[in-house]
Structures are given as structure tokens and as C-alpha cells.
């Protein structure tokens, strides 16, 4: 397989995963906003922070209003990390790898693109936004299901899996960081406490793991157990541990993977560690930072091994952010 094609397939899967996650994030966040007390510093801007879009937002927008935040995250084509940009790139990546994918891939992605493009004004309007996000999530699930159902276990599929796994792990760690953000708030710890279960329940929902958590963990919802569940539950498909296993499975049968294998092992060791959790302290945040750094290391090695073996790392990340 061509290096360039492998790179685009990898990113295609990342974008599809990212579109779904971003949509879910926005959806869950608006629910959370309704439940949280005014005194908790939760705003639409938190969405911008979780997704690392602060710099872009400060540069392009004035007020941190619902409309602005939603548009920056969802509809704004100038923001390379917005849902719409991810969708545009996903579509371009299918267009340039069409010959390796089932024919439906293009039709589904193109259909989704046409739909969102037509209705993008709905991102502004609270009453219509959820319906559109719902449709987007459903389409992404349909695409993922179609690929699972129609492909064979070939190199194309393997690079798609790698992209899905790494993006999913990254997003899970970011969402946990929202929790970490609250855990770290010293002064308001008391007040948050009574809303803790709502907060963590929403985090579970935003990675669509609420239902599975309820079935697997029979106790009340609290930070410690949600974190453990999302980080190293071996059975949950969205846990970081499972994502790491998914990557390792694929990497094992791809060429030249000595270095990558080592890094994935390091990631796995990190996941197996006892996760630090302490109210009023940034230790959880720091831990999640380490996880994200390790994911980024693996990502870079994908580049140096398969996508751009001899080119320096700065020029090669045109698609990442």
C-alpha cells in the first residue's frame, strides 16, 4: 500500500471518530449545562477548552456566548478542528482513497456532508442543534458499521482501525480531563460534591459508555470508578486499554514495527498504573496529560515508520492539529 494512501486512511478513520465524538460532546454538554448549579464554573467555553481550541477562539471571536462557542466547535470552516472541517477532510480523504474502500463509503460520507452543509445554520439554533447532532452521530455509526460489515481484514482495514483506536483513546482522555478539571477545583469542592454523580454520568454518556457502565459496575457513579472504567476496563470497546489492545493487534501484522510496539507497551504500562485521584489536586490532570503525550508519541511513530519515513516531523503533520 502507498504510504500516502495509508496516511489518508488513518486520518479518515480519525476524522469519522472525531466527528462523532465532537457531536456527542456538544450534545451531552448542553444537557449538563441545564443540570449544573450556577456557581459551578461551567460554560460553553469549556467545550472550546476540552477540544484545545482556545487559541483559535480568542483570535476569531469576542464573547464566549453559546452561539459563538457552538459555531467555533461545530460549523466554522476556518477552525481546522471544527466538526465541519473534520467532515470536509474526511470527505476529501475518501475522495483520494476511494479506490481502496467499499463504494458505500463515499456515498455515506458525501451524503452526510451534503446534509450538514445544507443545515449548518442549525448549529446556531439551540432548538434545532440537537436534532442535527443526532443525525450526525447516527451517520457516523452507520459508516463505522458499514466498514465493519463489508471489509476484509486487509491493510486498508488495519489503518482504519489504527486511526479509530488512537482518536478514540485521545478523546476519552480529554473527556476525563473535564472531570479532572472539576476535581481540581479546591474552593468549590463541597458544592461540586453533590453534583458529582451527574457530572460523571454525563462524561460516561459523552463516550456512550453510560449503559455499559451501568451493567458492568453495580454501584453509584463516582469519579474514581468512572475513571478506572474508562481507562482500563478490558471489556469496554471505548476504554483506553481496549484502544491500546486494538492498536497492538493491528501493529503486529504490519511492517517495521519494533519501535511502535515498544511505545504501545509503554502506553499499556501507563494504563495499568494506579491512577492518582485526589480532590483539590491536579494529579489526575497530570496523569491524563502523560497518557495524551504517549498517544502523540505513537502517532508520530506511525509517521516515521509508514507515512513519511525520511521526512522531518514538522512538515508532515499537515492534517493534525
Amino acid at each position: 500500500m502507498l504510504s500516502r494512501v495509508a496516511e489518508r486512511l488513518y486520518w479518515l478513520a480519525r476524522y469519522i471518530e472525531r466527528i462523532e465524538n465532537t457531536a456527542r460532546l456538544a450534545q451531552v454538554h448542553s444537557q449538563l449545562m441545564l443540570d449544573m448549579p450556577k456557581s459551578v464554573k461551567l460554560s460553553w467555553h469549556t467545550l472550546i477548552e476540552i477540544t484545545n481550541n482556545e487559541d483559535f477562539f480568542d483570535e476569531h471571536y469576542d464573547a464566549k456566548t453559546e452561539k459563538n462557542c457552538c459555531w467555533a466547535l461545530l460549523g466554522d470552516r476556518d477552525n481546522s478542528a471544527s466538526l465541519m472541517s473534520s467532515l470536509w477532510w474526511a470527505r476529501e480523504n475518501v475522495r483520494t482513497t476511494r479506490d481502496t474502500l467499499p463504494r458505500e463509503t463515499w456515498i455515506y460520507i458525501n451524503e452526510l456532508y451534503l446534509l450538514v452543509n445544507e443545515k449548518q445554520e442549525d448549529f446556531y439554533v439551540r432548538s434545532k442543534r440537537n436534532t442535527l447532532l443526532e443525525q450526525i452521530i447516527r451517520s457516523c455509526q452507520a459508516i463505522a458499521g458499514m466498514l465493519d460489515g463489508t471489509m476484509s481484514l486487509n491493510t486498508t482495514f488495519q489503518f482504519l482501525q489504527l486511526g479509530t483506536a488512537i482518536e478514540r483513546a485521545d478523546m476519552t482522555s480529554r473527556l476525563l480531563d473535564v472531570g479532572a478539571f472539576f476535581v481540581a477545583q479546591e474552593t468549590e469542592a463541597q458544592e461540586i460534591k453533590q453534583f458529582e454523580s451527574i457530572l460523571w454520568a454525563n462524561i460516561l454518556k459523552s463516550v456512550s459508555a453510560y449503559f455499559m457502565y451501568r451493567q458492568a459496575v453495580h454501584m453509584d457513579i463516582n469519579g474514581k470508578s468512572v475513571i478506572r472504567y474508562l481507562v482500563n476496563d478490558p471489556a469496554l470497546f471505548r476504554s483506553i486499554k481496549h484502544c491500546a489492545t486494538m492498536m497492538q493487534t493491528q501493529v503486529n501484522t504490519l511492517p517495521n514495527t519494533l519501535e511502535i510496539n515498544e511505545s504501545i507497551s509503554e502506553l499499556q504500562a501507563l494504563i495499568e498504573k494506579k491512577i492518582p485521584f485526589e480532590l483539590g489536586s491536579p494529579v489526575l490532570h497530570n496523569y491524563l496529560d502523560d497518557v495524551q503525550m504517549q498517544l502523540s508519541k505513537v502517532h508520530n511513530q506511525f509517521y516515521s515508520t509508514w507515512f513519511h519515513p525520511s521526512i522531518s516531523q514538522e512538515t508532515m503533520q499537515q492534517q493534525s492539529q
Partner: peptide
């Protein structure tokens, strides 16, 4: 040697 190659993931 004036031969054309394409860059693949395995070389």
C-alpha cells in the same frame, strides 16, 4: 539506476 518506484508502507 533510472528505475521508477512508488513509496509503500513496507518500502
Amino acid at each position: 539506476n533510472d528505475c521508477v518506484y512508488m513509496r509503500n508502507i513496507d518500502g
